[in-house]
Amino acid sequence: MRSCGPESGVPVVLIAGWPQTLHAWRAVQEKLADAGIRSIALDPPGLGESDPIGDAANYATPEVARRMAAALALAGVDRFVLVGHDVGAWIAYAWASLMPQGIAGLMLQDAAIPGAFPDGFLSIGNAARVFQFAFNAVPELPERLTRGRERVYLDWLFETKTRVAGAVTAEDISVYMRCYGQPERMSAGFNYYRAVPASIDALNDVAPLTMPVLALGAEFGVGAMMGKVLEPRCTDLKSVVVAGSGHFIPEEAPDVVCRELQALIARTSMPG
């Protein structure tokens, strides 16, 4: 957990995805602090500094959300704006759907969210963008193919899924490798994908979200699909496509993230 900005006030809670850690929010947290907004970045279980939680069954997003909500409550945080990117958005969607208490607003960034996105988005025709859903979910195979070559996999993902030059540097990938260079951490990341069917089943019949929601899609990522898919699942939705950005919005477009977060906060009942 990393907290930045004023010690008081209702915070923005930030959850990164795979293959990242809370390091992904470094620029966003700095900019939020400059704007006088408190932020708390959390590593999901098994990623970053957070301990793994056993086999794949434990990585279904409702279970992960419950664990993270309990950790936040222990830290004394009971009202917040929740932000998730990639797998972090999977978790944030489950959290807001099943435990909406205390969530003043929700931002979901560039993710094919289990329980929200149609299966067709994961079709073979879209394999260049979504192949990892199938590859990472196969038992044992991704571990065998990436063991000792974790950096090769991460380098390829960041090279192919970013559009803003220099947004994710070799040094940043080295930070991520401190986590993903450990075999058990690669398995933890893969387990989120292995748990996708359980995540979908648990979210089949959830009610529409009633807090203000912002769907942020990258032009060269999920794009406008974020808003289209979430529209029937929210009662108060705004959708934004981040022009020029690849998938890794927190690092490629931190100014946009902070601007839209401030607009989201203005839509909530939180004190300014």
Results as ranks from 00 to 15, higher is better:
M270D: 14
L106P: 05
G76T: 07
F131Q: 08
V256W: 07
H23Y: 14
L209S: 03
Q182M: 11
N191F: 09
F133L: 07
D236L: 05
S123E: 12
V240G: 12
P19K: 01
A207E: 14
R194V: 10
F80Q: 04
Q29T: 06
A195C: 10
A94N: 03
A57E: 15
P142K: 01
V64Q: 05
E150I: 01
V164F: 08
A56M: 11
P250D: 07
E143A: 09
M107F: 06
R26C: 13
G5D: 09
P114G: 02
E171L: 11
A111N: 03
V10P: 15
A41N: 04
V77N: 09
V77H: 08
P45H: 03
V164K: 02
G272N: 13
V229L: 05
A65M: 03
S269H: 12
G36I: 06
A89W: 00
C234L: 05
W90R: 00
M270C: 15
A33G: 07
C179D: 09
D205K: 01
L108F: 03
P250N: 06
P139I: 05
V152A: 14
R149F: 15
S245I: 04
D51S: 12
Q101R: 11
D255Q: 09
G227F: 02
P183L: 12
Q262V: 09
L264T: 01
R129G: 15
C234K: 00
P142C: 07
L157Q: 09
G84T: 01
E171V: 08
L214W: 02
T146E: 10
A94W: 00
E159W: 08
S239I: 03
A69T: 04
R147P: 14
I173V: 14
L74R: 08
L98G: 07
N136E: 12
P100V: 02
L14G: 02
V10H: 12
G54F: 11
E49V: 07
R267N: 11
G84Q: 02
K161N: 11
